[in-house]
Write a protein that binds this DNA or RNA. Structure first.
Lengths: 192, 192
DNA sequence: ATATAGAGACAGACCTGTCTGTGTAGGAGA
DNA sequence: TCTCCTACACAGACAGGTCTGTCTCTATAT
């Protein structure tokens, strides 16, 4: 038996792919606790034994969900065109508007998950932490390049503004978000 | 039987008071779905029948929890000293720092609840909406008094900053919040 | 005497996770 | 080409626990 045959690669399994896609949709739409395993496997068309072969527990599925959302976000940022730092920041923040005007926005997946996982040492919370550290650092580096005298402070404010506007898009009026993103970034960035 | 006797007032029942206090603590610490009725009544020392006499369902208890948190916030703002609008805004935003440095902060109760209630027509979401409308309007009026040329936009940005900093206090470093509140308000308010 | 509330059994549904059994597709060897 | 073998996945029963909500019975206090 070939232990490193392609079939052992996680991505090579269609069942695993269907499970993660279905879980992503249901976790986001219903909330994590409200989306049961029985429903996930039924809508994915996967047997329960197959599910527990790919994921040791529901929490591991949640971690995979969080990590994949994180990875997709990082890839989207990585493929942004090379441009001056201030334009890069505007482009990163502009992704908020894109995510939100598409419709079906139900809040930031990471904040929603954090609301359901109080234990900061849980694997789910660690995955969320990793995402937040990456996001803050990405902005901080661009701000430093831009000559911001306190790039870490400004980055924290931009992170807070991002989180707040993503929640506002869920709970208030999504159509106002694009203008608020632009205005908020303008006001938070140091004028020169 | 006197239908409007004092004993019919909701606040007159110690059992109801214990239920709401215990539910408030458990909903906030564990999350709403994760806090079961059995545990709430056990820790409150209340019989199940008594619980269902005071609250027709768990969701009604959740609504009472949200509405009470909302009421407490409004009372705290109402008792702030009369002062110029910009100082009032600073005082309202300063409540974020107070809430957070006390320790045990687990995120904004309203945002956490919204994460668990996807249906925007549910009573819980309506209670959250009412809170957000009040908060936005309070800031907008003060900004208009202050002569802000676009008080609604600025108010939306301050609401977003509030939400984002409350989440940051939960997921990042709470000790940095007071400085970020001050700095964020400074940058968002129109300079004159 | 009546209102209030404690204790707890119970129903029916749903939760996660384990288990057995069946079907199928593809590669290896004759 | 035919057959065997192995990996994979589907179907679903089952266990043990928890969920909300209803019920009966008992105790207390005014």
């Amino acid at each position: 038996m070939n232990q490193i045959s392609p079939r052992n690669s996680p991505e090579a399994s269609p069942a695993r792919r269907r499970l993660l896609d279905t879980a992503t949709r249901l976790f986001y739409e219903l909330g994590i606790h409200a989306a049961g395993i029985d429903r996930i496997i039924a809508e994915a068309g996967v047997a329960k034994a197959t599910f527990y072969k790919h994921f040791p527990s529901k929490d591991e599925l949640v971690v995979a969900y969080i990590e994949e959302q994180d990875r997709l976000g990082r890839e989207a940022v990585a493929t942004l065109p090379k441009q001056p730092p201030r334009e890069s920041i505007a482009a990163i923040m502009g992704r908020i508007s894109e995510a939100v005007v598409a419709g079906g926005w139900r809040g930031c997946p990471f904040l929603n998950a954090a609301a359901e996982y109080p234990d900061p040492t849980s694997p789910v919370r660690r995955a969320i932490d990793a995402r937040r550290v990456w996001y803050h650092n990405s902005l901080r580096k661009l701000l430093a390049e831009d000559g911001d005298p306190a790039p870490s402070v400004t980055a924290s404010l931009l992170v807070a503004l991002s989180d707040g506007l993503l929640e506002s898009a869920y709970l208030d009026d999504p159509e106002k978000i694009p203008a608020l993103v632009q205005e908020g970034v303008d006001r938070l960035l140091e004028r020169r």
